[in-house]
Write a protein that binds this DNA or RNA. Structure first.
Lengths: 229, 229
DNA sequence: GCAACTTTGTGCACTCCTTCACAAGCGCTT
DNA sequence: AAGCGCTTGTGAAGGAGTGCACAAAGTTGC
């Protein structure tokens, strides 16, 4: 009866086995501990850190435990150790070359975002085909025509690309990125990109976020009218 | 937080009980079915719709089933019905007034985002205290000093606000929004906002998204070196 | 050097979400 | 009008994520 009951699948995944939900919170934790370090804090308890990050202490401890045991019982976590360990897990030690396609307002905003270098990213190129943009300088980089993508991607080994174009252009931009060897895409265009399964796409969509807020707002409103007679 | 012992634990939550994970996907579904309607498609199966939205058919059907039974067995879903039902669930019939605080590149990009009206939102004001911005016109609206917020919020009944300021200003902007009666905040500043528990905050953070991509990229690379000997 | 105190790390139970598999139901064809 | 093929809707199972509670392990004070 117990033919394959002992198959080692029930074991909690260890090396490299950080749960997805935890991965999603690591950048937040990283930001918070860096801020603490800037404020001169050297040691922090899970309770204080959790409060700052807006999560529960138990969740925070469990998340950190996936990276190893870097806390000191009775004391807390050393901030510098957390920065190093979370950073290592996120690959901040490496320097990922990144390109942005689309230099409208959004592309401008992203290019001028100050936190690239300190988080392990290096912005290597901006692409846009609008004639009035090509050749201009944005955030210290010269805007290049999109046709230059393959060359840049090959030279710099770009694996991560940001799509900040209008919706109609997004799919063919994504296709070109994939063809150029990019296999992680951050998509700000309000479309669902169709890419090979080997490519990882994350979608950031203003309207979706607003609609989720509105949904909760509406539900709250309904509850209130019910509760408040 | 609230102790509601009588909450239907055995019974499947019914009226207004759409699971959070489903809520997060409804805007995506809505966008996809609207696109289909624009293309002249009148009927769609869960399989086709799921493929277009990038989710599994079973998940899609279960998600839609929380809104009611609006499909026809053997045929599929009528696109126009889905638009109406998902729209109703998301509160698109109402028109939520929204304000944006911070009119840098990001604020510009958000203000010029075309999809507000068609998704149940109405952008009622832009705020920024930079002297060179106040009084200028952006996306058909005149940029106003942040001090005008309370008046606008009261007049238009604003419940949803977008924070597109630099990090240092975000917290006090959030405080002012809350004081003005806004209780849903979409925060693009890379900080954790501290707000009363009655206020709903969603955070959109470029760096976090990139870091999650980088994490997977790194893991993929490690796997490859391991697998490929 | 020991006891009291503090805080981590984690097993366990529980809830939430996803996937599977199939009966129920609808339209089309013959 | 009856059967056949297709697709929805949904119970049930499985898996992932969260919260609880406490033992383990470190520090401080005496």
């Amino acid at each position: 009866m117990t033919d394959r009951a002992d198959a080692g699948r029930d074991v909690v995944v260890r090396r490299g086995g950080v749960p997805e939900a935890t991965v999603g919170r690591l950048p937040l934790y990283h930001r918070v501990v860096v801020d603490l370090a800037d404020q001169g804090v050297e040691t922090v308890s899970s309770e204080a850190l959790a409060a700052t990050a807006g999560v529960s202490p138990a969740k925070l401890r469990k998340d950190l435990s996936f990276l190893g045991s870097y806390g000191t019982r009775g004391v807390g976590y050393e901030v510098s150790v957390l920065i190093d360990q979370i950073g290592a897990e996120l690959g901040i030690s490496s320097e990922w070359p990144v390109v942005i396609v689309g230099v409208g307002h959004l592309g401008h905003a992203l290019a001028n975002y100050g936190g690239f270098a300190s988080r392990g990213f290096r912005l290597v190129a901006l692409f846009d085909d609008a004639p009035q943009l090509v050749g201009t300088e944005v955030a210290g980089l010269t805007v290049r025509p999109f046709a230059d993508l393959p060359a840049v991607a090959r030279t710099d080994g770009v694996l991560i690309g940001v799509v900040a174009t209008p919706a109609p252009a997004a799919q063919q931009v994504a296709d070109a990125l994939v063809a150029a060897g990019v296999n992680s895409i951050l998509n700000f265009a309000p479309v669902v990109l169709s890419v090979p399964s080997s490519v990882d796409v994350r979608r950031v969509d203003l309207a979706s976020e607003l609609q989720i807020l509105a949904f909760h707002q509406q539900r709250r409103g309904n509850d209130l009218t019910q509760v408040a007679r």
